[in-house]
Amino acid sequence: MCDTCGCGNPDEHATFQKPNEPNHKQEHHEHQHNHSHKIDVQTDVLAENNLLAERNRGYFDAKDITALNLVSSPGSGKTTLLEKTIVEIKSNIDVAVIEGDQQTMRDAERIDKTGVPVVQVNTGTGCHLDAHMIQHAIQELDLKTQSILFIENVGNLVCPALFDLGEAMKIVIISVTEGEDKPQKYPHMFDAASLCIINKIDLLPYVDFDVEKCKHYALEVNHKLKFLELSAKTGEGMGEWISWLKQQQKS
């Protein structure tokens, strides 16, 4: 058995052949192919997820719900941003939250203290939320019409970019304690996002993060990307973010 992945077939793709020797493996395959036939498939590998995402989207549209998929690396401050945001807007806008993490109820417990409905999705070993998980999570939440649904994805700048959840848009969050070249290191996420929040700007005097350079790198990946700079901790820039959110709310 292959000791790397346990697949049991370590040499399946390897061939061993001396010059001028017939390739028995190939001959054997040709024989097999005589009995086989080709079926045209032409199906997207993510077809099932995309179909479920469109169902979720239809549900959100029917109820005028604005679903926002928050994506970032771990530790960018997504949960703190959500806590502060919810406190600011919950008296005017109905809010609900889906929290995605591999393990623990911690983030859901933090959001629960703000008094809005929240469901925690633990993905186990999974590195992203998918449309099926969201479908189940929204069955648990009694979502109000014209509400905003925040989906806090698993902290990961790679895989969540590929999985449509049915959201209105992805919002990518980067904190100034990260490298300003993240948009080029993880281009898929910045390509998939519509808004980029640069968080923890209160720490700018203490770090080497160049905001303009970061924006430039991000625009090279996605020229339509919009930016907001804020500090969820001090509240700087939160006003613009809240106004932006109010503009997204459907009427």
């Binding site: 080709k38 079926i39 045209d40 498939v41 032409q42 625009l219 090279e220």
Partner: peptide, 19 residues
Amino acid sequence: LAVEIIQGRDLKIKSINVD
């Protein structure tokens, strides 16, 4: 900068060969 990707995002099963 105003560049749109028009090809290369594909992730599709084209065909299968079966017995």
